[in-house]
Amino acid sequence: MKVIGVNASPRGKDSNTLRLVNAVLAGAKDEGADTEFIDLYTLRIEYCTACGTCYATGECTLLDDFSDLFDRIMNADGIVLGAPNYIDAVPAPMKALFDRMADAIHCQMLTGKFGCSVCTAGGSGESEVVGYMNKVLATLGANIAGGIGVAIGRDPNALGKAETEAHTLGKTLARSIRGELTYPEQDEMHRQKREYFCQLVKYNKDRFAHEYEWYTQMGWMK
């Protein structure tokens, strides 16, 4: 059982969001998971150019750290996303990562995986950012085990409580991976989404050759 944490904070070891990501990973580790932490600000993720090459070949024309990071995500059973609130959204490196995953969205490549998100904010908006990151994970095919958001500016002591909740979330994530917790409503949503993207890929199979092959190999093409 492998759980990976991706933190998008420019503050390095002084990041408050880092504390939440590490708490989730610690909870998962207590349940037997092998964990890995990635500081997104130490990587170079270029902006998507919308060239469409990934749809056709499964490869990206940009030479940076994205491919290695994506391989590490694909090799994980659970994904933890962490970001501070930047104007009710994620910082640019996290958004750049999301934008590079269009092929993975079409192919629903995180199907069978589980995810959660954490966010710290000064005054507000933490819930919106957690919701956005979890929606991205769900759009990629993952089931969502939960999320933690905390506004530290309103209560500096709130971070400690949030760390305790994040540790519990990590345990929940690991139990979900083991199959102890199930998400039938999310499973049905993913089934419908796969059917939608299957039709999209089928109608564009000349341009989306890689994706058509993916759906065929997965046994999802109808």
Rank of each mutant, 00 (worst) to 15 (best):
T42Q: 15
L62W: 09
T53Q: 12
D34W: 01
G160N: 04
L137V: 12
M74Y: 08
I177W: 05
D103G: 13
A121P: 07
W220F: 01
S117T: 04
E46D: 10
L40K: 02
G179N: 10
T216S: 06
E163D: 05
T139Q: 14
A96F: 13
E126R: 12
L69V: 11
E128Y: 10
T57V: 10
I73A: 09
A104Y: 12
E163S: 09
A166E: 10
G123M: 11
H106C: 08
T17Q: 00
T139R: 13
V136G: 04
F70V: 14
I38R: 09
V136C: 08
I144L: 12
Y132V: 03
K95E: 06
S124W: 12
Q217R: 04
N204C: 09
N85D: 03
L18A: 00
G147H: 03
H210E: 04
T172W: 07
N134V: 02
M74Q: 10
E188S: 06
A162T: 00
T164S: 07
L169A: 13
E46A: 12
E185N: 06
D64Y: 13
A145L: 05
A121F: 07
I45C: 04
N143D: 07
D187M: 00
P156L: 00
G123A: 09
S67M: 14
L97F: 15
D77Y: 06
P84C: 01
F208P: 08
C116D: 06
G123L: 11
K13I: 00
P91T: 14
N134W: 07
E185K: 06
E180G: 03
A96K: 13
M94D: 06
H190N: 10
D71K: 15
K222D: 02
V130R: 13
V150Q: 01
G115V: 11
N204M: 09
D68W: 13
V136Y: 07
E59I: 08
L18I: 00
Y55H: 12
L181C: 04
N22I: 01
A28L: 04
M101P: 06
Q108Y: 14
D206C: 04
M101D: 04
Q199G: 04
D99Y: 06
N134D: 08
H210Y: 15
I177E: 03
T111Q: 14
E59Q: 14
S127C: 05
A162K: 02
R100Q: 15
S9W: 02
L110P: 13
P84Y: 01
G179D: 05
G170I: 06
C51H: 03
I87R: 07
K161I: 08
G82K: 00
T42C: 05
A162H: 02
V130E: 11
W220C: 01
F114G: 11
E211P: 06
R191I: 09
K29V: 11
Q199A: 01
Q199V: 04
E211D: 08
